[in-house]
């Protein structure tokens, strides 16, 4: 098991390397050099002229003026070796600090919707399969299809409107007030967060839940009619024990490997829902940084959310190996 985990960890390195190149190329795509543009903007808007020394410093730090491969090496080198994500010209702050402020909440919301998806999808999927063609099955299948078909930004928008018109509360943001958001972490702050965070979690999780219910239902249905289930039943195993011990274990495999792709999906959903609901997470900041050619902030966020999803793939693989010895010992 340990060697398996180690091998998967080593395998992540080249993948992360390729992703970092992709991200770097993506943020460099807009025409023109972002730093030159920034210098120009500063001069035009604030009359601030960069001294020779500033430019030299920028060359040393970001490889300003160097060819792209050198810039890339400096960029990724700073991140990996020093945790230095560069400077956000738009926010006038260290990009690393902006990201560090955003990431905990982003991860919390993504994980929250992840747990929501799992807690909801697993029992409903099992129920839909065991009681196939029952009213509950039809109702959940129907709701699942609706969840799959409604764009989550639209769902967010509709919930915001419902919140304001019917419940007279605002679902925007994650905290009751800006003071609480600025305040240091305390039990009261966590409680306030929980009170607000469930709405985006449900919104983000809905589509994924619908997909997972369908996966679970289809896989369990395949297993339920196999002879070994009949045998176990004939031997007098109770229905519940039978279900949990045999067919469910089989059906869990695609379910677990399915969630390797669930987190990228949730993070992507999070980005757009956060923009609509104005959450203090990476979504709105990413959009703004991309729109304003704030390359280091945008690149850092893109890199980190890709990293997050890679970790989730790793976790799902480990879970899969733990569940299924064939994967652990096979090639």
């Amino acid at each position: 098991m340990l060697t398996y985990i180690l091998r998967r960890l080593l395998y992540m390195i080249p993948v992360m390397f390729i992703i970092s190149i992709l991200v770097f190329l993506t943020i460099q795509l807009p025409p023109g050099d972002p730093i030159t543009k920034m210098i120009e903007n500063q001069r035009l808007q604030q009359g601030r002229v960069f001294s020779e020394k500033d430019i030299e410093m920028m060359q040393a730090r970001f490889g300003y003026g160097d060819p792209l491969p050198v810039q890339y090496t400096k960029w990724i080198g700073n991140i990996v070796l020093r945790g230095d994500f560069g400077y956000s010209f738009y926010k006038r702050e260290e990009a690393g600090k902006v990201i560090a402020d955003l990431m905990p909440l982003t991860i919390a919301i993504s994980l929250g919707s992840f747990i929501f998806t799992w807690i909801v999808a697993l029992p409903i999927g099992v129920l839909s399969a065991v009681r196939q063609y029952s009213i509950a099955d039809y109702v959940f299948t129907f709701i699942g299809f609706i969840g799959l078909a409604i764009p989550n930004f639209l769902l967010a928008l509709i919930l915001l409107v419902l919140g304001l018109t019917t419940f007279h509360t605002s679902f925007t943001g994650l905290f009751s007030s800006a003071e609480i958001q600025q305040a240091p972490w305390s039990l009261a702050k966590v409680w306030d967060l929980l009170k607000h965070a469930w709405v985006p979690m449900v919104v983000i999780g809905t589509g994924g839940t619908a997909g997972l219910i369908r996966i679970m239902r289809a896989n369990l249905l395949d297993e339920l009619h196999k002879p070994y289930v009949e045998t176990a039943r004939a031997k007098g195993l109770s229905e519940m024990r039978l279900l949990v011990k045999y067919p469910l274990r089989h059906a869990m495999n695609p379910f677990v490997s399915g969630f390797a792709y669930l987190l990228p999906y949730l993070v992507a959903g999070e980005a757009i829902v956060a923009i609509v609901m104005n959450l203090p997470t990476e979504g709105p900041t990413l959009l703004n940084s991309l729109l304003n050619l704030d390359v280091y902030l945008g690149g850092g966020i893109l890199l980190l959310i890709s990293f997050m999803t890679l970790i989730s793939t790793l976790l799902s693989d480990i879970l899969l190996a733990w569940l299924d010895p064939r994967i652990r010992y096979g090639n």
Partner: peptide, 14 residues
């Protein structure tokens, strides 16, 4: 690699 990258952020960037 492509499946590990969340689609909407990358689409936004592109």
């Amino acid at each position: 690699v492509l499946r590990a990258i969340p689609d909407i952020p990358l689409w936004m960037a592109l």
